[in-house]
């Protein structure tokens, strides 16, 4: 079973690499944020696979924390970063494109 788990973990990590490319490339901040959430989900999956591989139940706790806290990061982004920034005219532009 071990090679299957390891291959699955490597495949998931490669998926996270695709997410990293999207974070780097953008072009809007919403794209970057969703890509970060993709990496979170992938990390949760890698942790679950690793917990089966090394038989350490504590890794499931780490995965639980990531799954729970992803919601906080996203809620933060929509309420506090993606705002109608002040009075600047290009502010809305920056929220959409930076």
């Amino acid at each position: 079973m071990t090679p299957i788990y390891l291959s699955a973990a490597i495949l998931l990590l490669a998926n996270a690499g695709v997410g990293a490319w999207r974070i780097w490339h953008g072009p809007t901040s919403a794209d970057r944020m969703v890509a970060a959430e993709l990496i979170t989900t992938t990390t949760v999956a890698v942790l679950l696979v690793l917990s089966a591989l090394v038989e350490q139940p504590v890794l499931i706790d780490v995965a639980l924390l990531f799954a729970l806290l992803a919601a906080v990061a996203m809620a933060n982004f929509v309420t506090r970063t993606w705002t109608l920034l002040r009075e600047d005219s290009q502010a809305r532009d920056e929220a959409g494109h930076d």
């Binding site: 929509v78 506090r80 993606w82 705002t83 109608l84 002040r86 929220a95």
Partner: peptide, 8 residues
């Protein structure tokens, strides 16, 4: 806090 860009 500033107002969000969309309704939530």
């Amino acid at each position: 806090p500033f107002a969000p860009a969309t309704a939530l």
